[in-house]
C-alpha cells in the first residue's frame, strides 16, 4: 500500500466515523488485471477497499453529480422538517477537481454538499496504448512495480515502462494537483514537462483538409453509439440529452456515418470551455474512437480565444455562460 492510498483510507474512515459524509466515492481493485472500478463506501469497515494507483482511470465527478441529483430528486416530496441532507466525499485528482469546479460554477450543487479528498496524480494507464503494445492480446496478469509494468499475455511475459502506456492527456496534463480540495492525500507534485500541449492539434490542423476529413470519418465510423463517452463525461449531465429527444429528433437513431458524426459533433460542441481533458470518454470506449484530438482543439480555442481553462478557477467566468461585447467571433465569420 502506498502512502497516498493509506491517507485516502484514513481520511475516508474519519469522515464516515464522524458522520461528516454519507458516502465516499473512490476506486477499488477490479476483477481483471490492471483494472479498477469506481466504488461507493458507506461504512468505515469498508475503507480498506479504496485504492490509488495508475489503474485508477475514470473521472469520478459524474458519480458525484448523479448521487447529489438523485438525492435532491428523492427529497422533493418530503416534508420540510423531514428533509435529509446528503454529503458526498470523492477522491479527486486534478482533472476530477476541475470537473467539480465546473459543476459548482454551473450551480449543480453547493460546495457544502461535497468533501474533496485531493490526490496528486501522475496519470493513468491508457487501455488503447496498452492494447497496442501487446498487439491486441489479452493481458492475463499484470502488476505495477515502480515505473515498470509487468504483463503476461498468451505470447509470454514482457515488461513495459509506465510512461510508454500513460495516457496522452496525462503526459500533457498541467493540472496534476487538484485545483480545489478539502484534504490532500499527499504532497503536490510537479507537472510533466510537455514541450507543447497542443502539438496533437497543430499537427492535425496542418494536414490537408481531405486527410482530416478522412480521419474524422473513419473514427466516427467505428462508433457503435453506446454513449459510454457521454455517460462518463462529468460535463454531460443533462437530464434529457438531445440524443434521446424525439420531438424534434435532433439525430437519427441509426448507426450510419452521418448520424454518428452529428452525434459526436453536437456533443463535442457542448464541451467548449467545459472539457477538462480527463480522457475518460476515450478510455471507456470499447471501439477505441479517438475523440481527444477534436476535444483538444476546443481546449486550445478556449485558451487562445478566451484565456480560459475549463474548471481551472472557481471564480472565473466560463465562455459558454458569459457574453462580452469584444468576445472573439472570428471562428464564426472566418472559419478555417
Amino acid at each position: 500500500m502506498n502512502s497516498i492510498e493509506e491517507k485516502i483510507r484514513e481520511e475516508a474512515k474519519r469522515l464516515l466515523d464522524e458522520k461528516k459524509v454519507d458516502v465516499v466515492i473512490g476506486y477499488e481493485t477490479g476483477t481483471l488485471p490492471l483494472q479498477t472500478a469506481p466504488c461507493f463506501i458507506t461504512s468505515s469497515d469498508e475503507v480498506d477497499k479504496l485504492v490509488w494507483n495508475p489503474c485508477c482511470k475514470q473521472n469520478l465527478a459524474i458519480y458525484v453529480h448523479s448521487a447529489l441529483t438523485q438525492h435532491r430528486e428523492s427529497q422533493k416530496r418530503v416534508k420540510p422538517e423531514d428533509k435529509k441532507a446528503k454529503i458526498v466525499a470523492v477522491v479527486a485528482r486534478g482533472c476530477t477537481s476541475r470537473s467539480l469546479v465546473i459543476h459548482l460554477q454551473e450551480k449543480q450543487y453547493n460546495r457544502e454538499d461535497l468533501v474533496i479528498i485531493g490526490v496528486p496524480c501522475q496519470g493513468y494507464i491508457d487501455k488503447n496504448k496498452l492494447e497496442a503494445k501487446v498487439d491486441g492480446l489479452e493481458v492475463i496478469t499484470g502488476s505495477i512495480d515502480g515505473d515498470a509494468i509487468k504483463v503476461e499475455t498468451s505470447k509470454g511475459k514482457t515488461e513495459l515502462s509506465l510512461i510508454e502506456v500513460t495516457a496522452d492527456n496525462c503526459l500533457e496534463c498541467r493540472f496534476c494537483n487538484p485545483v480545489i480540495h478539502d484534504f490532500m492525500a499527499g504532497e503536490a507534485i510537479p507537472v510533466y514537462e510537455s514541450d507543447d500541449e497542443f502539438a496533437v492539434v497543430d499537427e492535425f490542423a496542418a494536414l490537408p483538409e481531405a486527410d482530416r476529413w478522412d480521419y474524422f470519418s473513419a473514427e466516427m465510423n467505428k462508433c457503435m453509439r453506446c454513449y459510454a463517452c457521454r455517460n462518463i463525461c462529468p460535463s454531460c449531465y443533462c437530464k434529457v440529452c438531445f440524443v434521446e429527444q424525439s420531438q424534434p429528433e435532433w439525430v437519427g437513431a441509426g448507426v450510419n456515418p452521418s448520424d454518428n458524426q452529428v452525434f459526436q459533433i453536437m456533443r463535442m460542441f457542448h464541451m467548449a470551455g467545459r472539457c477538462v481533458d480527463c480522457g475518460s470518454c476515450v478510455e471507456v470506449c470499447a471501439e477505441g474512437v479517438d475523440l481527444r484530438k477534436f476535444l483538444k482543439k476546443l481546449d486550445k480555442d478556449d485558451l487562445d480565444l478566451y484565456e480560459h481553462r475549463a474548471g481551472a478557477e472557481l471564480d472565473k467566468e466560463a465562455p459558454l455562460s458569459t457574453f462580452r461585447e469584444n468576445d472573439a467571433e472570428s471562428f464564426i465569420f472566418e472559419p478555417k
Partner: peptide, 23 residues
C-alpha cells in the same frame, strides 16, 4: 458504478432487444 452505456448488451451475442422507429 454502471454508466448505463449498454456496451454489455451491444457486444453480447445473445442480447436481442430492439426498438422500432420511423424517420
Amino acid at each position: 458504478g454502471c454508466l448505463a452505456c449498454g456496451t454489455c448488451s451491444y457486444l453480447c451475442p445473445t442480447c436481442h432487444c430492439f426498438d422500432i422507429r420511423d424517420e
